[in-house]
């Protein structure tokens, strides 16, 4: 059984269909990619999974449990964490506080103590040097890492990353790829939306392609790269120019 199972999700915005019978699944211990051109519905899919966007029909299951009726914070407690494409850091708080507040919310009886746990996460994401800096003063690349650290602080089962590499330097991008692989090896399920297709190809075990609100195809990196429909979805058709 996949950890995350999104089945037959349809979302209407007024007359427009944003998502049309979208189905996808994510396995524990693996990195899954969700790619597609701008406006295809990727972020909407994330909003559906985290409960920020109500669905017209369809369901979201986590480890077999139906999440569809749960509010966002209950889904978070069930183990879904995410980052945002448009940064949603807690801008007036320090980097450490950003991570700490998430760790405190998930303080379990026998879990780690929030303070040291947050510090360890900062260390792991190489953010220790900016721990005392206000989050809205960070350059975008590092602010994205803060969001990842914050999401990890909730000790999730499923991590949704919305364009985590955008704004990262090549070096940072490289270490992000390593981090994702490590996290997956540790048992975490990761679903990643990313425009840096080479990065996606490198780290993802499975890739779903979304275009015009529907899943166009899915498969391994090699299968996706060979698929002409995917190329068309990305680059448009040549005869289009007329």
């Amino acid at each position: 059984m996949p950890l995350l199972d999104v089945s037959d999700v349809t979302v209407h915005f007024g007359g427009n269909i944003a998502l049309d019978s979208v189905a996808l699944s994510v396995e524990a211990g693996s990195v899954t990619g969700l790619i597609g051109p701008n406006g295809a519905g990727k972020t909407t899919t994330f909003n559906v999974i985290t409960g920020l966007q109500p669905v017209t029909s369809g369901s979201v299951r986590l480890a077999g449990e139906d999440m569809s009726r749960l509010s966002p914070y209950k889904r978070a407690r069930a183990g879904i964490a995410r980052t945002f494409q448009r940064l949603e850091s807690f801008g007036s708080m320090t980097v450490r506080e950003n991570v700490l507040v998430a760790a405190e919310l998930r303080r379990g009886r026998n879990g780690p103590r929030p303070g040291p746990f947050a510090d360890a996460l900062l260390e792991r994401l190489s953010l220790t040097d900016v721990a005392g800096v206000r989050a809205d003063g960070l350059p975008t690349g590092r602010a994205r890492l803060v969001e990842i650290a914050r999401a990890l602080a909730t000790r999730p089962k499923l991590l949704l990353l919305d364009e985590p590499a955008s704004g990262l330097s090549d070096g940072e991008s490289e270490s992000l790829a390593e981090l994702l692989t490590e996290l997956a090896e540790g048992g975490l399920a990761i679903l990643i939306v990313e425009h840096d297709v080479p990065l996606v190809m490198r780290v993802c075990h499975q890739i779903f392609v979304l275009a015009f609100g529907a899943i166009l195809t899915s498969g391994s990196a090699a299968e996706i790269q060979a698929d002409t429909r995917v190329q068309e979805a990305y680059l448009g058709t040549i005869e289009g120019g007329g």
Partner: peptide, 18 residues
């Protein structure tokens, strides 16, 4: 910290379980 987080981003606060 929770209060401040809620002020800065309600959406992110909800998705970390608040």
């Amino acid at each position: 910290r929770r209060l401040q987080a809620m002020k800065d981003s309600p959406a992110a606060s909800a998705t970390i379980g608040m």
